[in-house]
Measured scan of single mutants.
Amino acid sequence: HTVDVQGVTYHFDNPEEARKFAEEMAKRLGLQVHVKDGRYKVE
């Protein structure tokens, strides 16, 4: 499970961890979480 944050890619084994990380980063950076091709993108 992959999370892209402003061009940096993070990998997680656990989909729940990936989702939480994406939401946390989006909140911290004031950005949105998009799901695209099964990847989380924070932009």
Rank of each mutant, 00 (worst) to 15 (best):
V35T: 06
K36I: 15
E17L: 11
P15C: 09
H34F: 14
F21S: 02
D13P: 11
A22N: 00
H34Q: 11
Y10F: 12
M25D: 02
Y40P: 04
Q6E: 11
Q32N: 08
V5D: 01
E16G: 10
M25V: 09
V42S: 02
E16P: 05
E17N: 11
G38D: 08
E24I: 10
H11Y: 14
K41P: 04
D13K: 11
Y10N: 04
G38Q: 04
L29P: 02
D37R: 03
V5L: 08
V35G: 09
A22M: 01
G7F: 05
F12K: 02
V5Y: 04
V42H: 01
H1M: 12
G7M: 06
M25N: 07
G30F: 05
G38L: 03
Q6S: 08
D13F: 11
G7V: 02
E24A: 11
G38R: 04
A26R: 01
G7Y: 05
G30M: 05
D4P: 01
Q6W: 08
A22I: 01
F21D: 00
D13Y: 09
R28V: 11
E43G: 14
H11T: 13
E43S: 08
E16N: 11
Y10K: 04
Y10P: 00
K41S: 15
D37L: 03
Q32D: 06
Q6H: 08
D13V: 12
D4I: 07
P15E: 14
M25E: 14
K27P: 01
N14A: 13
V33T: 03
G38P: 02
E23R: 06
K20I: 13
E23F: 15
D13G: 11
P15G: 14
A22S: 04
E43Y: 10
H34Y: 14
Q6M: 14
D4C: 08
A26Q: 02
E23V: 11
D13S: 12
D4T: 08
A26V: 02
T9C: 07
V5R: 01
T2C: 08
F12S: 01
F12Q: 01
P15K: 13
K36V: 15
Y40T: 03
L31D: 02
Y40M: 03
E23S: 07
R39P: 03
D4Y: 07
V8R: 12
T9F: 12
H11F: 13
K41R: 12
A22G: 03
D37N: 08
G30S: 05
E23Q: 09
V5E: 00
T9V: 14
L31H: 04
D4E: 14
A26K: 01
A18L: 02
V42P: 01
H1K: 10
L31R: 02
R19F: 10
V3D: 00
F21G: 02
Q32E: 10
G7N: 09
V8M: 12
N14S: 13
T2N: 10
V3F: 01
V3K: 00
V8I: 12
V33Y: 06
V35C: 06
K20A: 13
N14W: 10
Y40I: 06
H1F: 12
T2E: 14
R19T: 05
G38C: 08
K20L: 14
L29A: 03
A22P: 00
H1A: 14
A18R: 02
E24K: 10
G38Y: 03
P15R: 13
K20T: 14
E17H: 11
V3M: 01
A26C: 03
H1S: 13
F21K: 03
G30R: 04
M25Y: 06
K27D: 11
Q32Y: 10
V42R: 00
V33Q: 01
P15V: 10
N14L: 12
T2F: 15
E24D: 13
A22D: 00
Q6K: 10
V3C: 05
G30K: 05
Y40E: 02
T9P: 09
Q32G: 06
A18Y: 00
R39T: 15
A26N: 01
V8F: 11
V3P: 00
H1R: 10
T9M: 14
K20G: 11
T9I: 15
P15Y: 05
E24Y: 12
R28M: 13
G38F: 03
H1W: 11
G7L: 05
R28S: 10
D4Q: 08
K41H: 15
G38K: 04
K27G: 08
A26L: 01
K27I: 10
G38I: 02
K41Y: 15
A26D: 00
Q32K: 14
E43R: 05
H1Q: 10
R28T: 10
D4G: 05
A22K: 00
Q32S: 13
H11N: 12
F21N: 02
E16L: 11
E16M: 10
R19W: 10
D4H: 06
H1T: 14
V35D: 06
V35Q: 07
E23A: 07
R39N: 15
K36H: 14
V3T: 03
K36N: 11
D37I: 02
V33P: 02
G30D: 05
V42D: 02
P15M: 12
N14I: 09
D13C: 06
L29N: 03
V8Y: 12
E23G: 07
M25I: 11
R19Q: 09
A26S: 05
K41N: 13
P15W: 07
G38V: 02
N14K: 12
G7W: 05
D37A: 04
K36P: 01
K36F: 09
K27H: 12
H34A: 08
T2G: 08
V33S: 03
V33E: 01
K20C: 09
L29D: 03
P15F: 06
A18G: 05
H11D: 11
E16C: 04
A22V: 02
Y10E: 02
E24M: 13
K41I: 15
D37F: 04
P15A: 13
E23I: 12
Q6T: 11
E23K: 06
H34C: 07
E17C: 10
D37V: 02
V5H: 04
T2I: 15
K27F: 12
Y40L: 07
G7R: 05
V35H: 09
E24C: 09
D37T: 02
H11Q: 13
V42Y: 02
